[in-house]
Simulated scan of single mutants.
Amino acid sequence: MAATDAHERLPVYKTRKLYIGGGFPRTESGRYITATDPTGEFVANICRASRKDFRDAVVEAREAQDGWSSRSAFNRGQILYRMGEMLESRRQAFVDTLVDTAGYAPDAAGAEVDAAIDRLVYYAGWTDKFSQVFGSINPVASSHFDFSVPEPSGVVAAFCPEAAPLLGLVSCLAPIIVPGNTVILVVENDAPTLALDLAEVLDTSDLPGGVVNILTGHREELREHVGGHRDVDAILSVGASTEERTILEREGAESVTRMEFRPGRSPAEWRADESQSPYWITPFVEFKTTWHPVGR
């Protein structure tokens, strides 16, 4: 008699971990959040990221930033395109997860996954173009050439939207990494397992470890630590409450951390063209000006 016939087989449930530095560690705190579907049924236990996890992610992001920004714009575009390819290859699995865990209708789930794939391809096309669009040659009164060119800010922390758990996440991370930044994404929504599934896509997309880091947890717990961390160069907060905005601005003031606040959007609004733009890249670059003499 086969072993599987002797007793009822127990399913092997997937362990959901954080994504830091190209690896999948458990949270150092040992805490977890129970994710459920719209009916209240158990989906998974996911890691509840701590302050220490965030610090570890910043270290990995800083270490990866120079290498990522020094890659050619064309190569960064290839990698974003590869992300889209890998997400396309797992399209049905993501559709099923949106239906089962977030309560989407099948058509709406398919539309969100398709939009996420298309958005990665969209930003892949901007990697070697935004510098020409937003850079400039400035008129000056002296015998010099004067160039302004965009350079990455560095390490960016992003509080991701609650709605559109896949597309909202992609819409945050893609414009941040296009110019050469690295990012720590803080995810709290109704389908947080999708973020960890996306981490597996990123991990097989030639993306260097540490460029994108994903922490699942409570943004209320982490926001003060994020705002006050001196090695974070910029912060994106989507759907911030008045209290959260006040905390981030207060904590980030001493280190002059750049802040970008965006309103929350519905899933349909995230799919709209207005939710993708090269102008979503510019909050995460610094414009550097170079002078070059002309003549003798």
Rank of each mutant, 00 (worst) to 15 (best):
C160N: 11
V212S: 10
L236K: 07
R230L: 04
G168L: 04
A124W: 02
G295E: 05
D118C: 10
G125N: 09
L80F: 04
E8S: 13
P106Y: 13
R26F: 06
G23F: 12
P179I: 14
Y123Q: 04
W291L: 15
R62I: 00
G110T: 05
G22H: 01
R230G: 11
V232A: 01
S266A: 09
P38I: 04
A141N: 12
R62F: 03
R55I: 07
E8W: 11
T15V: 15
R62C: 01
R91V: 09
E112A: 04
R219P: 00
H218E: 14
L166F: 13
L120E: 07
N213D: 05
Y104M: 10
A2I: 08
N75M: 13
G217A: 04
A35W: 11
L248G: 00
S275P: 03
G264W: 01
G168A: 06
V95N: 01
S277D: 10
T97D: 08
E112D: 07
S277K: 07
A234C: 04
Y32P: 04
A108L: 13
L248N: 00
I33L: 15
V256F: 15
W270G: 08
A64E: 02
P175I: 09
D118S: 15
D37F: 04
G77P: 02
T39P: 00
P283R: 06
P263G: 15
D197N: 09
S205C: 08
A124L: 03
A199S: 10
A163S: 14
S131Q: 13
D197A: 09
I177Y: 02
F24R: 04
I20D: 00
Q65K: 08
E8R: 12
V149T: 12
S148T: 12
G295T: 07
Q65D: 06
V232N: 02
E188W: 03
P25Q: 02
F287H: 12
V99Y: 06
D128T: 08
A240K: 01
V256D: 06
G252R: 03
L173A: 14
R219V: 09
D146N: 14
A105P: 04
F74M: 11
W270L: 09
E63A: 15
I184D: 04
L18W: 00
T289I: 11
V156L: 12
Y279R: 15
N181A: 08
D114W: 00
S136N: 11
C160L: 10
H144M: 10
D190N: 15
S70C: 12
G67E: 02
Y19C: 05
H7N: 12
V285W: 09
S205W: 06
S136P: 03
M259H: 06
L198V: 01
G154L: 10
D273N: 14
H144S: 07
V187R: 02
D128A: 13
A234D: 01
H229L: 01
T242E: 14
T242A: 13
T101K: 01
G295C: 05
S277G: 05
H229M: 02
I177C: 10
T204A: 13
R265T: 08
A108Y: 06
T127P: 05
E220D: 15
P11T: 06
P106Q: 10
N189A: 01
V156F: 11
K129N: 07
Y122S: 02
A35Q: 14
S153P: 01
F287R: 13
R62N: 03
A141V: 11
